[in-house]
Simulated assay, not measured.
Amino acid sequence: MSGAVLAQLIAQGVEEGAGLVTLRGIAEEAGELGATRALARLGLTDERAAGDMRELRDLLAAWRDAKTSAWKAVFGWVSAAVLAMLAVKLGFAELVQ
């Protein structure tokens, strides 16, 4: 998409005075043009872009799940170690084995 429609709307606003409809049109076209440019810069303008985004979201969700599981495991290990040290300190060494 080029900026031709946006330029035309701006010219119309300058010539006729910018009414509400013209201003809305300018805002919509500017938003559309900006979004199109941003997607193009990210390389997300081809037919595979939607699938790529779904795959990236799936990978991110898997990473978050793995990170959560890792923190839970670390917490479990630390808790077990603390309890074992406490048991040894209190004289319950036979329970630790």
Rank of each mutant, 00 (worst) to 15 (best):
R57P: 02
L90D: 01
A27F: 11
D58F: 04
W71A: 15
A18P: 06
G43E: 01
V14Q: 13
E47A: 15
A61K: 10
E29F: 01
W63C: 08
A87L: 10
S2Y: 00
L44G: 05
W77N: 13
T36M: 09
G3V: 09
G3N: 14
L33T: 07
K72I: 08
F92K: 11
W71F: 13
K67V: 14
K67D: 15
G13I: 03
A11L: 11
G43W: 01
F75R: 15
A61N: 14
W71Q: 14
G34C: 09
V14N: 09
V78R: 12
L86T: 01
A40Y: 01
M85N: 11
A66V: 00
A18S: 03
G3Q: 06
W63Y: 13
W63G: 09
L59K: 14
G17L: 04
V88Y: 02
A50M: 06
A62V: 08
G31D: 02
F75M: 10
E16V: 07
A93V: 10
W71M: 14
A93D: 14
L6T: 01
A35E: 12
S79L: 13
E29W: 00
D58T: 11
L9Q: 07
A50R: 08
G17F: 01
M53F: 01
A30F: 01
L95T: 05
A4I: 04
K89I: 01
A38C: 03
A66F: 06
M1L: 10
V96G: 05
L39Q: 02
A7N: 15
T36H: 07
A70H: 09
A35I: 02
M53W: 00
S69Q: 15
V74H: 08
L83S: 08
A62L: 12
W77H: 13
L44Y: 04
V96Y: 02
G76K: 12
G51L: 07
R37T: 12
L59Q: 14
